Simulated assay, not measured.
Amino acid sequence: MNKIIEIKNLTFSYPNTSNPILNNLSFSVKENSWTTLIGHNGSGKSTIARLLIGLLVAEKDKKDPYAIKIDGMELNDENIWKIRDKVGIVFQNPDNQFVGSTVEDDVAFGLENKGISREKMLPLVDEALSQVGMEEFKNSEPAQLSGGQKQRVAIAGILAVKPKIIILDEATSMLDPEGKKCILNLIKKIKQQYNLTVISITHDLEEVEKADEVLVLDNGKIILQDKPEVIFDNANLLNEIGLGLPFIYQLAEMLRQKGFLISKQANTQEKLVKEICQLSLKK
């Protein structure tokens, strides 16, 4: 697959800090993939998200002044608005993204900024709300919605402008387990429908299992990059940097230590339950 995001030798420091939050960072993201960034607080995950949409500006290296490329374009002053048309971001708190007095107005905001006529705008807004199951709330005030509904509206606002990349910056961290599951399933569905590239930034290791590739950050550097099941095989390293393992992996390992023949492939709830049932049948 093509590389839709390329980061090369990226260094970034916040003002009045002695050490860089990102230190000579390099990685790429494949088009139409789901890539998840994990790491403890201060490892640089959200900084990367803000750099990708130009809310922060990377330091320039004399040898290679353009450290970020998105969809083949260098992220610079000349291309910033073109790149922002390609990238949408959903933040942790959707209230910080709302600008309209109604759900419909809020979803229309990005289209208005692009100069889309009202005649063309209304069907795009209806389509986006339909995709996230919020069409019946289009005349509601955003403040009256639940946390999960607010995130759906935020996603609809992004879908309306038809980006190529969606960044989820801790987008499910304020939701209850059921709301979190619904939002992640929704993102998975629209990713497949629109061939989107998803970058998920999270502390929730259960969310990591949906990724095609996982990047583990520690002190501004990538220390692991691989598929979820390979990442979770490095339990000792994850524990050392304070991340641990998802519950299913912990349970499977505990059963192995108790003498049960649980395979490494039992890395989801469904697979683990199936293996436990098979062991019971053998007995």
Results as ranks from 00 to 15, higher is better:
residue 95 D to E: 15
residue 131 Q to D: 12
residue 116 I to H: 06
residue 100 G to E: 06
residue 119 E to I: 07
residue 83 I to P: 07
residue 123 P to H: 08
residue 84 R to S: 03
residue 126 D to N: 14
residue 86 K to A: 10
residue 102 T to V: 08
residue 129 L to K: 00
residue 111 L to G: 10
residue 85 D to A: 12
residue 108 A to H: 01
residue 117 S to G: 03
residue 130 S to Q: 11
residue 87 V to I: 13
residue 110 G to T: 03
residue 102 T to Q: 12
residue 89 I to N: 08
residue 129 L to F: 09
residue 82 K to Y: 03
residue 113 N to P: 12
residue 103 V to K: 00
residue 84 R to Y: 01
residue 105 D to E: 14
residue 129 L to D: 11
residue 112 E to Q: 13
residue 90 V to P: 10
residue 133 G to P: 04
residue 115 G to L: 12
residue 82 K to R: 01
residue 105 D to T: 01
residue 125 V to R: 06
residue 127 E to K: 10
residue 135 E to Y: 13
residue 84 R to F: 03
residue 119 E to R: 12
residue 115 G to D: 13
residue 104 E to V: 01
residue 123 P to G: 10
residue 129 L to Q: 03
residue 99 V to K: 02
residue 114 K to A: 09
residue 100 G to H: 05
residue 125 V to C: 11
residue 130 S to R: 01
residue 132 V to L: 10
residue 108 A to Q: 02
residue 85 D to H: 06
residue 119 E to C: 02
residue 116 I to M: 12
residue 107 V to L: 01
residue 93 N to M: 15
residue 127 E to A: 14
residue 83 I to M: 02
residue 115 G to C: 09
residue 89 I to R: 05
residue 114 K to Q: 14
residue 130 S to G: 15
residue 99 V to M: 11
residue 105 D to M: 07
residue 85 D to F: 03
residue 86 K to C: 05
residue 103 V to L: 02
residue 89 I to K: 04
residue 97 Q to P: 14
residue 124 L to R: 03
residue 108 A to Y: 00
residue 99 V to A: 14
residue 91 F to V: 13
residue 120 K to A: 11
residue 92 Q to K: 14
residue 117 S to P: 07
residue 111 L to F: 00
residue 85 D to K: 14
residue 131 Q to H: 07
residue 134 M to W: 01
residue 124 L to H: 04
residue 90 V to E: 05
residue 105 D to R: 06
residue 96 N to Y: 15
residue 84 R to I: 02
residue 128 A to W: 01
